[in-house]
């Protein structure tokens, strides 16, 4: 008979204890962060400085060593370099990052000797078209950076809010929309052609 009543007593007591815990939460502060429109402080301040967001390239300090391209395990970085044969100056003609492929592992930025490529705190780069997520950082050829003794580019202040990448993405989207409106049928044919070529 005792186990019978013991069961009743323990059940009621455990429910009582549980209710006391849940009631106490009615007087405690909610832990929700009301993203995006009721934030207590801007999101940028809430993320840590090491946050691995969307990659950004500061092309003015890129030395063109291509280490980032080589270390990337999924080949989401593409770099083209050109050399002027007369002046023997080297140019950066292409630095593309496919953000839709990127898995934000940090291997590329870790090995960069000048911190030209680094992670920003910018993360909400959603678009309606996957192709728009290929960010092209070089519009016109840029002379490669050379190490100077007086300054160390690693210590410079990085733009962690990702201004460049945001601008590039917006620009590309506008451009895409314009070309899409004008060359709708052409686009389709070209895509078809590419597929035929592959096959």
């Amino acid at each position: 008979m005792t186990p019978y009543f013991n069961a009743v007593a323990t059940t009621l007591y455990s429910i009582f204890e549980g209710m006391a815990v849940t009631t106490s939460y009615l007087f405690r502060r909610p832990s929700t962060i009301q993203y995006p429109n009721k934030l207590e402080k801007p999101l940028e301040e809430q993320l840590s400085d090491r946050y691995r967001g969307i990659l950004q390239v500061d092309t003015s300090v890129c030395i063109g060593c291509r280490i980032c391209e080589k270390t990337c395990p999924i080949d989401c970085i593409a770099i083209n370099l050109e050399k002027n044969k007369e002046t023997k100056e080297r140019f950066l003609t292409r630095f593309d990052i496919d953000i839709s492929k990127c898995m934000f592992c940090g291997l590329c930025s870790e090995n960069c000797s000048t911190c030209a490529i680094y992670h920003t705190k910018f993360f909400n780069g959603a678009t309606q078209n996957v192709d728009e997520l290929v960010v092209r950082f070089v519009d016109s050829p840029i002379v490669l950076y050379k190490h100077r003794k007086d300054s160390d580019p690693k210590t410079r202040e990085k733009d962690l809010s990702g201004v460049i990448v945001k601008q590039k993405m917006v620009k590309q989207r506008m451009k895409k929309q314009k070309t899409a409106k004008q060359e709708m049928p052409v686009n389709k044919i070209s895509k078809h052609k590419i597929k035929e070529e592959i096959l």
Binding site: F16, E17, A20, L26, F27, R28, R29
Partner: peptide, 24 residues
Amino acid sequence: RIRFNYFNDKTAYENLKKKSPWYP
């Protein structure tokens, strides 16, 4: 019991979040 549960982690919460847990 409700009071006990509330004060159980009050100071630690204040240290961690730098806010008072009181929110009626």
